[in-house]
Computed example of a mutant assay.
Amino acid sequence: MAYIWLSAGVSKIGVHMDITQTIMAYEIFTPAWSDMLARIIGPLEIAGGMLLLLGIKLKPAGWVSIGVLSLFIIGLASAWARGLVIDCGCFSPDQTDQGTNVLATMGRDVLYIAITLWMIYRPYKKWAIYP
């Protein structure tokens, strides 16, 4: 899961306008909120990935990860229910016309939640700092 969060966060660094447009495509947030979220989401994903990679506070970091993934699923479900054709913006902002397979993306996020739950309840403790 550390790799997932790190790769997602790194892909968002330096492409602020693309991330803002991706967030605005969900039609949930105002342009000001979309801009703010675009500025903070990449660094926050990197920070979360580093906590998981280094084994620092594994359980709290895992619960935050599950919360964020749940919010992503809610946003995707909302866009899908309204018939929007969007790019999820998960690992790179791709402003193509074909959009994302939303159901597959939500399924992938559910799988990530399952992996994170396994990590929370069966953490590898040898190198973890305060799991």
Results as ranks from 00 to 15, higher is better:
A77E: 13
L58D: 05
I56N: 11
M50W: 08
L84E: 03
P43F: 03
A77Q: 15
E45G: 10
L52G: 02
V10W: 15
A79E: 08
A79D: 02
I28H: 05
I13A: 12
I56R: 01
I73L: 10
K59R: 13
I73H: 02
M36V: 14
L69C: 00
G99Q: 14
V15D: 10
H16A: 15
A104G: 05
L53W: 06
L76Y: 08
G49Y: 08
I46V: 05
I74W: 14
D87V: 07
D18W: 09
L51E: 00
C88E: 08
A38W: 01
T105K: 02
G14S: 04
G83F: 10
K57G: 04
F72P: 08
Q95P: 12
I23K: 10
L53R: 13
G48I: 02
G67P: 02
G48M: 02
G62Q: 00
I40D: 02
G9K: 10
L44H: 01
G55I: 01
M106V: 11
I13Y: 14
I41M: 04
M50L: 15
D87G: 07
G75E: 05
S34L: 01
K12A: 03
D87C: 13
C88F: 14
A8P: 14
T100W: 09
L76E: 12
A25S: 12
I73K: 05
S34P: 04
P43R: 01
L52I: 11
S65E: 03
I13R: 11
Q98Y: 13
C90W: 08
A81E: 13
Y26G: 06
L53M: 11
G48N: 04
Q95D: 13
L53I: 07
G75R: 00
D94V: 15
F29W: 13
G62L: 00
Q95A: 12
T100I: 07
I23T: 08
T105P: 09
L69F: 00
L37K: 02
I56S: 10
L84R: 14
L71H: 05
D97R: 05
N101T: 14
F72T: 03
L84Y: 03
L51P: 03
L71T: 07
W80L: 09
S92G: 13
L54Q: 05
W80A: 05
S11R: 01
V64L: 11
Q98C: 07
T100N: 12
K59C: 14
D97Y: 12
G107C: 11
G49V: 01
M50N: 04
V85N: 04
R39I: 08
L52W: 11
P93V: 07
I28C: 08
R108V: 09
Q21M: 13
G83M: 13
D97F: 15
L52C: 08
V64A: 01
I56F: 14
F91I: 01
A104V: 09
A77M: 15
I40S: 05
C90I: 09
I66Q: 00
I46S: 04
V10A: 15
T100A: 09
Q98I: 15
L76A: 08
L76N: 07
L52N: 06
P43E: 00
